[in-house]
């Protein structure tokens, strides 16, 4: 299992889907572990009743069906399926409405879904998902991207309330892939994934939604920054190591 994860870590992100399916067929006994450890691009389904799209993940799956956060119905239809309690469902509905506004303000498009379920320790778990197609043909406002995919997965565990306080543990994963294509730079593609955790103890006076939202906003911002500055920056540094920038070369040039 450790070896399999070691291999996946070394695989270029664009090939992780292929690598995962290869590992699943080699190590069927570890399939549930592999699936829970490895994130793949999010899939989307249309909720026919509400006419809206929703995101599929392990947290809204029961058997081979997925529950829509909009109508609370499973697609395909599933009998005796699992549902959150009515109280938690109320919070889930609110979270979906508010998170859609948040998503619109940061992403100018995209799809979002929030799922909640009761946890064993009297608390609950919430999963906030965003999928954005930022390509020219998708929701890319500036039309810079030939291809552009962003998937954000925020899973947040909320502990039981104790003296007006609650423990929050957030794990955020971002997966992205972007490609630009123009004559001078040709096909220029960056892709990857990154995951971080954040733990906080917060007063519940302003509500769970407010606390979870702030944490997600902060961590999502941090992840975006480190992708932009650290991760993209490291690949740029590597290019400059392989072939140092033009100025140095040009100084020695004229040879005609």
């Amino acid at each position: 299992m450790e070896a399999a994860l070691g291999l996946l870590r070394r695989m270029p992100p664009k090939q992780s889907e292929t690598a995962l399916s290869a590992l699943l067929s080699l190590l069927p006994q570890h399939s549930s572990d592999l699936l829970s450890q490895v994130d793949l691009p999010l899939q989307v389904l249309r909720d026919i009743e509400s006419g809206k799209d929703f995101i599929l993940c392990e947290y809204n799956r029961d058997a081979d069906s997925y529950r829509s956060p909009w109508s609370n119905k499973y697609y395909p239809l599933l009998e005796d399926a699992l549902y959150p309690s009515s109280e938690l469902r109320k919070l889930e509905v609110e979270a979906n409405d508010i998170f859609a506004i948040y998503r619109d303000q940061y992403y100018e498009g995209g799809i979002s879904s929030v799922y909640m379920w009761e946890d064993v320790n009297e608390g609950f778990v919430a999963c906030f998902l965003i999928k954005k197609d930022g390509s020219k043909s998708g929701h890319g406002r500036r039309g810079c991207l030939e291809e552009g995919a962003w998937d954000a997965i925020h899973v947040i565990q909320v502990g039981p309330e104790e003296e007006e306080m609650a423990q929050y543990c957030l794990t955020s994963t971002i997966m992205l892939s972007l490609t630009t294509d123009d004559e001078s730079s040709g096909k220029f593609g960056l892709s990857g994934s990154i995951r971080r955790q954040m733990k906080m103890e917060l007063a519940v006076a302003e509500g769970h939604l407010c606390n979870m939202g702030r944490m997600i906003e902060e961590l999502e911002g941090k992840l975006r920054n480190s992708l932009d500055q650290v991760y993209f920056g490291k690949t740029r540094e590597m290019v400059c190591t392989l072939r140092p920038p033009a100025e140095i070369v040009q100084m020695r040039l004229p040879d005609t």
Partner: peptide
Amino acid sequence: TFKDLRRKLPVTRTLFPWQNTL
């Protein structure tokens, strides 16, 4: 380029008003 995936700040240029969610 990256802005077409996710903006650094919301369109409103201020952090999301979570305090209003309640």
